[in-house]
Design a protein around this nucleic acid. Sequence first.
DNA 1: GTCTATATAAGGATAGAC
DNA 2: GTCTATCCTTATATAGAC
Lengths: 211, 211
Amino acid sequence: MTDGCDGDAADGETTDGGWTDAEEEIMLATYRALLEHGYAGLSISRIADELGKSKASIYYHYDSKEDLLGAFLAYAADRFQSSVLTEADDDPRAELERVVETLLPLRPDEEMRQIQAVFLGLRGQAVTNGTFREQFTEIDDQLAATIRGIVERGIEEGTFRDVDADRVAEHVLATINGAMYGRATSDRETAVAAVRVSLSSYLDAELRRQS
Amino acid sequence: MTDGCDGDAADGETTDGGWTDAEEEIMLATYRALLEHGYAGLSISRIADELGKSKASIYYHYDSKEDLLGAFLAYAADRFQSSVLTEADDDPRAELERVVETLLPLRPDEEMRQIQAVFLGLRGQAVTNGTFREQFTEIDDQLAATIRGIVERGIEEGTFRDVDADRVAEHVLATINGAMYGRATSDRETAVAAVRVSLSSYLDAELRRQS
DNA sequence: GTCTATATAAGGATAGAC
DNA sequence: GTCTATCCTTATATAGAC
């Protein structure tokens, strides 16, 4: 990578993360290009068009397309994960429900639909791209840890039964991912609602104290 | 499409489906090319290399790359679905477990891993490709119907409780898809086993008669 | 940091011979 | 049905001016 997450706070850097203004503009242009053309149709030319600058200016900031895409995935993952971690400290069951609603909203707004579409478009490449694969491994690891943490807290507080938190977390994550994936790659409109209902009743049955 | 699923049994057609020998060879070459280079690296040249023939010979059979890919997805879906439908008439709970084991094997052989990798690589394109999207909608519809049918049979036979078969089916499908997807696009090796255990205990709790 | 111009390769697709 | 040869477009990436 040309630049990216190094610590030195050079001029023009924004408050969050380690992205210069120019780099962030390129990331946003990449996002728009992905939305319009999908991963298969993504090119440096397209990104440059969205950016309103020349192709060469992109190569000043990133050594190659691969480099740029790696940086973009890190950028997107960062924003994706922080959107999930916006949680007040409710009771664990409500917190769990809010994580589900965040990742798998019953009525997603256009922005969420787009973010997930872009994300899943990239994730499809992880089948054959090792760098992407590593990054999505980390993303899922962190999501699973978040869910597991909530379940563990519920157990400690005595709100939940003494279940295997890891199993529950993996089940919930897989179900969310599967429904998210289905929503983004098919037109089975009623599926998500059915999964949401079933997932909630599963969690109630699995976690509620009197079994 | 140039040819494909029309009914007339022209010369050179194989027993199953509506594929001529030449077309099936192209499908197999496409499969190998996808395995080696992934969707992003798939080109007519690569397919021709795998086929051992010239690019032009492919254009004799298919009008365009898009045409070829549509045919390939239909071909792959056909083989994928028939692999799931290989079920003897056990009791419904065992049949359910075998569907899960087929789609989400604890120890997948290399062939299954490859089939799923290719499949998910294509599915990633359904985010932006309407034709693919329609085909995956149909695939998921049929998988859901298969699962739902087993649950309904169990209810009729009195083996299962009177649950909402559709909800259970959508839950199971989403969980399977999510775990399959995770396996193909990340390196979280223990996740599938955890999901399998959790899914089995969910089905036991949800379906067993005395609630 | 950004531009124009360009090198070089690969892509999809067709023409016409066999 | 398959081949070679070719057209045209697009892609990644670089050089060198400003």
